[in-house]
Design a binder for these strands. Structure first.
Lengths: 299, 299
DNA sequence: GATATTATTTCATATTATGAAATAATCAGG
DNA sequence: CCTGATTATTTCATAATATGAAATAATATC
């Protein structure tokens, strides 16, 4: 991996057309400059500068390298400087988006505790279950339960895994029987999470074996609590985050089925808009939220 | 200046969420990874990763930094790899553009000598005096006499300074007298180089003093030899590169005037299209041309 | 609560970086 | 053509840093 210090020195020499002048401008000694350029040339395996004791000029390779690397070096400087200047008050508006069920359960407590610690902040809490675009919808922070995107350009941060389980009401199971294998689900009513496509594929794993089941052919909803309530009413089998159904289970309203078959792990994930500089208030709230979720109220 | 090795290690740890796994993947020892991340955090003055002995996760600052720095590191890799792979045959078509006068004087000799050394190459020589766009006009190399552009994004390379002098024919000077000061030029016919604007400003310096003269109000041309011929015909005073008028001066057709007043230095400059990878044939021709100009035929 | 894994620290050693001085090379001016 | 001044590089002794094995501290799992 190439050394940015060497690159900076090389660019200075190339611009000033002098090793001595570059050394003076960079407050270094001449040997340091010489060694930096030689080292870079050796590293790249190509000569960048032509020098006599009286005249320095770029080679064609050096000219191309300089032209391409200069803007990159500026970008690096900008990114690191933006990060270094992460200071300032924790105050101002923070626009937060979260899924309905999760938001209702924990955001009120997090928000109150946060506002005690940082009274200068203003929280705008927005709960939606549908897909949101954090940029165009103008949020500072979106809390989602999902598999993190492959996309390298969005800014996201996994907090903790969210376990999901299959549940049904005792009444439903009495009428239709409990499934013994994933294949049995095909003859059951499976409640899908996605109301739009009316269908969802459940991927279930057990000891290396994977089974896929189509859910939602008869009933679907876009909200965890809604689906939980439908399941409690005996409408069918649901695949839901544990934190949504834990109360219903301990009250006996729902029962876990096919416990040994596990769906893919989802992650509680924070999404940020493409900040150049993360505002302190957003950073603080993120970290506060993470502490709360992982310590005070594990999912 | 930040250390790219540390950045690479940090990104690996962030992706794998484990120092030990990152060490294994990068074929390093665990202490090296720990120290790289700590060093980076110290350098940036902000914590990037949250770690316990069993779990590693990004801080919000770390997530933003990772998302912004990752594409930059990829670009950096690409630039250096493109440069490292500067090998291969010196063969194929090289499309070269040059100013008319300079091109006529030296390109034939350079081209012949180059073709002897690299018979596999094909040279396309294009002479124009007007402004060219190296990208849209599809040249591999443009030779210009100009002040290098301020623009940091174009790829150019200064070869050597080009001295310019003020000249007129003996006949013209006999009729109108020789100017003693730059101000005297206002009552003379000054032949401008730029035919399009019909006007050109001559900036003349002598011992720290600077004078500006407007030229070309009555006669202008876009070609050095053309203007030289006009001056030889006694049409007025011209400001021309020394190499264009040296023959006419030694033949007595032209005489230098206001010798102690010097115009700004122009540079013989090579321009490249925004190559990602400079083709070997273009690099070789550039270096060949430079050697010829600075050694065989100094301007 | 024992165990295994993990991140970090310690410490001795090897490597590298650094600058003053010496050297070699080159251009300008007499 | 020589001298002097400037410049890039090398030398060399020293200081600073990097490195890995082993020890340590911390934590999740069984």
């Amino acid at each position: 991996m190439i050394d940015l210090g060497q690159v900076r020195i090389f660019l200075t020499v190339a611009e000033l057309r002098s090793f001595a002048a570059a050394a003076r401008q960079l407050a270094m000694t001449a040997p340091t400059v010489t060694r930096a350029v030689s080292g870079l040339e050796e590293e790249l395996g190509i000569q960048l500068l032509l020098r006599t004791t009286r005249h320095v000029s770029l080679t064609s390779a050096g000219a191309v390298f300089a032209a391409r690397i200069r803007p990159l070096l500026d970008d690096f400087r900008k990114v690191t400087e933006d990060l270094r200047e992460q200071h300032g008050d924790v105050a101002g508006l923070i626009r937060i988006n979260a899924p309905m069920s999760l938001g209702l359960q924990i955001l009120p407590d997090v928000a109150s505790a946060f506002r005690v610690e940082y009274p200068g902040t203003v929280l705008s809490l927005n709960l939606t279950d549908s897909f949101i675009d954090i940029v165009s919808d103008d949020f500072d922070l979106a809390i989602r339960i999902s598999e993190p995107p492959r996309d390298k350009s969005t800014i996201w941060r996994k907090l903790c895994p969210v376990r999901r389980i299959l549940v049904a009401s005792p009444g439903y199971l009495a009428s239709f029987g409990a499934p013994e294998t994933p294949e049995d689900l095909n003859s059951h009513t499976c409640l899908a999470y996605d109301a739009r496509s009316l269908e969802e594929t459940w991927e279930l794993r057990c000891q290396g074996r994977t089974r896929r089941v189509r859910a939602g052919r008869t009933l679907a909803g876009n909200n965890g609590d809604l689906i939980s309530r439908l399941a409690e009413n005996g409408e069918g089998i649901a695949l839901l985050p544990h934190f949504i159904v834990e109360d219903a289970i301990s009250n006996g309203l729902l029962v876990q089925v096919l416990a040994e078959w596990e769906p893919p792990e989802l992650w509680l994930t924070l999404y940020y808009p493409p900040y150049e500089r993360l505002p302190m208030r957003v950073a603080k709230f993120s970290d506060f939220f993470e502490r709360y979720v992982t310590r005070t109220r594990p999912l």
